[in-house]
Design a protein around this nucleic acid. Structure first.
Lengths: 331, 331
DNA sequence: ATGAAAGCGCTAACAC
DNA sequence: GTGTTAGCGCTTTCAT
């Protein structure tokens, strides 16, 4: 049936060990025999069995990736960064969607460990004590991408969400709106909280009293943005600047505003968060916080390779730089 | 170190075989011993090693997924459909990006087979004889998603691209433009060709002479759309309807048109293709061909499970229904 | 209903 | 530079 390393050894008149050596590029093989082996590999169409190799070597050269939703324009970009670096280091990726469902997340972590992944990249709203416990059931290294562990115990790659939100809010304030409206998602995930903290701090630093009416909680998607815009317009007298916690939300808000005859940015300014490809796919183009999604994924994967190689890393919680990209949704 | 099935057997005073049976839900175990085994599994924190299991059973419960680019809004939706059904059938997914690079594609197929995937979902511009040869190096079942094999030899899930393009074009013609402009990607991938064929047929059926000036080749992305719009406007006297081969391209065209003071749909009508989430994230909202991406992925995966179970399938080349979604970019 | 034992295909000492 | 030989942790006949 399928040809094994044993068949190759027999046909080439060498031992399995020698075949294994040439397959794995071990230099301790005489060029002549290497060639001989290579030839019979070619002739027999031998293909190494990675599962057997994994069992014997205890390395599968695959890493697990737990992601909230691969169809999200945000996370799929992260995933691309992860896979590119994984490929560069000869790893494959096992990808699973969690939908940010805690039980599913916990189950998936276990599942990845069963599959003997060499490492794990985790993305989610945030990490709880239970997650950490689950990670600890194995000695396999884990890295968080665009995900916060409040205790900083797990290696991670993020941006400074609080500072980024602070800066975005300040931009709006400096443009003339003392207390912008903040629209974000419900729930108090760490990332979420940091953004809100940054927003609040900026308002406070501008000597404004916080007004909870101007803090709107909804979902982070387009439709919610449209709805939020409607709600805002119906407030009648409302601040003329809006900070949305995601680009998609911002697009929904812009279009919702426009549908009600509000001009962006002349009547109301809007800034988003992430700088997904959507940001340039609207009119007016979106001013937003640049979060380097691809790089976060890539750096997280790179970090993971270091742990998998047992290299020492200086800083296991890396903060990537962000910036504010001014486009046409603000003045 | 790690606890194995052998440890559980010893601690529970049963054989490995019995532990294996309870782990795999084999009914041939007395309830009492099952409970005893379950307890010691719990106590020892035993976690089955899927690699060892894979080697022994020759089933890895993982399927390979080769995808052009997971960060694409189109393909990531397909991937989600694939993963959901995979999860439903207890499979995991190994995901790799090919960038539609043939050598990479061929290498990835081989890589997936090395990893002993139980099945393979392939997405790409199209299948060549070499791809088929590569698939044939293994007996592992393969299914194509949103990908055409001209010979129909490989199981696949698609829509009728030609008919869909024909209908979209006809809509434009019936709205008053005898020979719309067609904007699509360069190259003659099967999917691409079918769309173009459908377009041409619709024009011919409307008793129009084909005008190659009105068939524009570019990339399928937003920026190309903006550029195409510029080119079109500069034509001066041009048809007042445009059929774009993807939604993203259509968005670029719409905005490019608007940037030149052209009103959509009153001055020029635009229809897209795919009905990605982008279609509702523009003003005017986009009239487009609905391609059920998620379903294509889901059905392809479902189809694959049938082959993996050696079930007989009646039609291995499934064509899912499409439709035209009329929104506001057409009259 | 349960156990014994032979692999699955490969790597990794260790010996020569 | 090459071969021998234990396993890796599990499933799967085949007995009993």
């Amino acid at each position: 049936m399928t040809v094994t390393i044993y068949d190759v050894a027999r046909e080439a008149n060498v031992s399995m060990a020698t075949v294994s050596r040439v397959v794995n590029g071990n230099p301790n093989v005489k060029p002549a025999t290497r060639k001989k082996v290579l030839n019979t590999i070619e002739r027999l169409g031998y293909r190494p069995n990675a599962v057997a190799r994994g069992l014997a070597s205890k390395r599968t050269t695959t890493v697990g990736v737990i992601i909230p939703d691969i169809s999200s324009i945000f996370f799929s970009e992260l995933a691309r960064g992860i896979d590119d670096i994984a490929t560069m280091y000869k790893y494959n990726i096992i990808l699973s969607n969690s939908d940010q469902n805690k039980e599913k997340e916990l189950r998936l972590i276990n599942n990845m460990f069963e599959k003997q992944v060499d490492g794990l990249i985790y993305m989610g709203a945030g990490i709880t004590e239970e997650h950490v416990q689950q990670f600890k059931t194995s000695s396999v290294p884990v890295a968080l991408a665009a995900t916060i562990d409040p205790t900083d115990a797990i290696p991670s790659v993020n941006i400074d969400y609080e500072k980024a939100a602070y800066e975005a809010t300040t931009l709006l304030i400096e443009n003339g709106t003392n207390h912008p409206i903040y629209v974000s998602e419900e729930g108090d995930s760490p990332v979420n909280s940091k953004k809100l903290d940054g927003f609040k701090q900026a308002v406070v630093d501008a000597n404004q009293e916080l007004n909870e009416d101007y803090i709107i909680h909804t979902k982070l998607n387009y439709k919610s943005g449209e709805e939020a815009a409607k709600k805002i317009v119906e407030m009648g007298n409302y601040p003329k600047a809006i900070f949305a916690a995601s680009d998609e939300l911002a697009l929904g808000i812009i279009h919702g505003l426009q549908d009600h005859g509000v001009d962006v940015p002349n009547d109301v300014e809007v800034v988003g968060f992430d700088n997904t490809r959507l940001a340039t796919m609207v009119r007016p183009t979106l001013t937003t916080v640049v979060q380097p999604m691809y790089d976060i994924g890539a750096v997280a994967m790179r970090l993971l390779t270091k742990f998998m190689n047992k290299e020492t890393v200086d800083d296991q919680n890396v903060i990537l730089p962000h910036q504010i990209m001014r486009r046409n949704s603000t003045k």
